[in-house]
Amino acid sequence: MSILQILDIGLAGLVLAVAAWTVFARDAFAAVVGFVAYGLLLSLVWVRLFAVDVALTEAAIGSGVTGVLLIGAAGRLRKLEASGGDDELPGASLRLFAAALCIFVTLVLAGVVLSLPDPGPTLAPEAARHLAETGLGNPITAVLLSYRSFDTMLEKVVLVLAVVGVWSLAADQYWGGAAGNPRGAEPDGTRALLAQVLPPLGILIGIHMVWVGADEPGGAFQGGAILAAMWMITMMAGLTEMPSIRSRLLRLVLVAGPAVFVAVGVAGVAFASGVFAYPTGFAKPLILFIEAFMTLSIAVTLPVLVAGPPKRLRQQ
């Protein structure tokens, strides 16, 4: 057994242990913290699968932004439920039945997954064959923004719908207001300092990730998520505030990504071979154009989703 294998097995054990912690921890907040750690470990697994783009996305969105969303929720729930005591587990027989079911599912899945052909069927050669047409070097960006761009565009619409859904949970009197907590000058200097030091660095890294995403691992999702994280840091430090949900600029940025995507896609009918096709030779610039707007939309959508529905009227 090589060192790498030992390392892999150790990593697998660690991932499963932390995952089990998030399920079995007594305290919800502790479970959430476990989930953040779990996300970090999972990105290591993704690197071991040679899926660096996914590792980046998992680190940024799966662990980073989702983690912050859950930490915030767990913190607020803890404050709201002063009494507690409502986390009694269901009866032993149900738990036993659930455990049996879950073990069964796991075993069946593991069996089936191991039976999958190796080397398996793949679209990698197909993807490689068309890569030149797109002018890109990163095949994953080519899948996301060219071969299956329709999926990606629709997924941006999912984000927009999520924003509408989250906003719809506002109290009526706060409609038109803003989410988040108003803060005065921060007494705590550490956060303010971090909020001044990190974002310039983060913005640089975020933009870098989008830019290199055309040829190297990276792209609009990962870069956008880093930018989102930076904006959220400055909000947490009280340096910036969530805009009003009725702000025209905010809405413009929210829909810009999918709207530009749809516009370029439909323009393909006139200028290329069909909808969501790119004119020969213009694929790469158009893809970068779309990605720029997508990055912007993601950078704003993620914090808006984390911030939740509007909770106060901004100017009154």
Partner: peptide, 28 residues
Amino acid sequence: ATGVRGVDDVALGLALLAAFAAIAFVDN
């Protein structure tokens, strides 16, 4: 050791996001 390309960006991202999670925690 395994020759995976582009991992430096993952490392950068992880470093930023770990700090981000900590700040979010303090915030809460």
